[in-house]
């Protein structure tokens, strides 16, 4: 696929927009359809597309397997961390009211943070799964 100029250009041009859209879906998830799960999948889709066009090696140089693998774990950690942070501030586990002075702001912050955890996990999981399958296929052939 090295010679496909149109594909390579299109992929290169689209990738940043896909990434920004993914972030938009996350941060605007409070107001419009979207949220952590969708954003994580969209971010992963950008890298999957890039590795389909440019090859796995090129993408793994920018985004190595150990990194996305740690992302999968880090996201769960962030989620649980928010829960424990709320506990440390005197509320129940995952009770976001205590995270800011005003309960409503605390809810906003808490939702954003746990959704960020979901984004990181889902992104890490989807990309890792793709890397692993693609890597297997490459080594076999």
């Amino acid at each position: 696929m090295r010679e496909e100029l149109v594909l390579r250009l299109a992929a290169k041009m689209m990738a940043p927009f896909i990434l920004v859209f993914g972030l938009y879906v996350h941060f605007h998830g409070d107001y419009s359809p979207g949220g952590g799960f969708q954003a994580g999948v969209i971010l992963a889709a950008a890298f999957v597309m890039l590795s389909l066009v440019f090859g796995l090696d090129a993408v793994q140089r920018a985004l190595p397997l150990w990194f996305v693998r740690s992302c999968a774990a880090l996201g769960v950690l962030v989620y649980a961390g928010v829960g424990f942070a709320a506990m440390a501030l005197g509320a129940n586990f995952l009770g976001y009211d205590a995270l800011a002075s005003d309960p409503e702001k605390g809810q906003h912050l808490g939702i954003l943070l746990v959704e960020a955890g979901v984004v990181i996990t889902v992104f890490g999981v989807m990309t890792t799964a793709f890397y692993v399958f693609a890597d297997r296929g490459r080594r076999k052939s």
């Binding site: 949220g35 989620y79 829960g83 586990f93 995952l94 809810q107 808490g110 939702i111 979901v118």
Partner: peptide, 20 residues
């Protein structure tokens, strides 16, 4: 919650345990 998207509110706040 003060979040217009009810799905997000339920997902992350009311049912935060589930989502975790």
């Amino acid at each position: 919650i003060g979040v217009p998207n009810v799905v997000t509110a339920v997902l992350a706040s009311y049912r935060g345990y589930d989502t975790m």
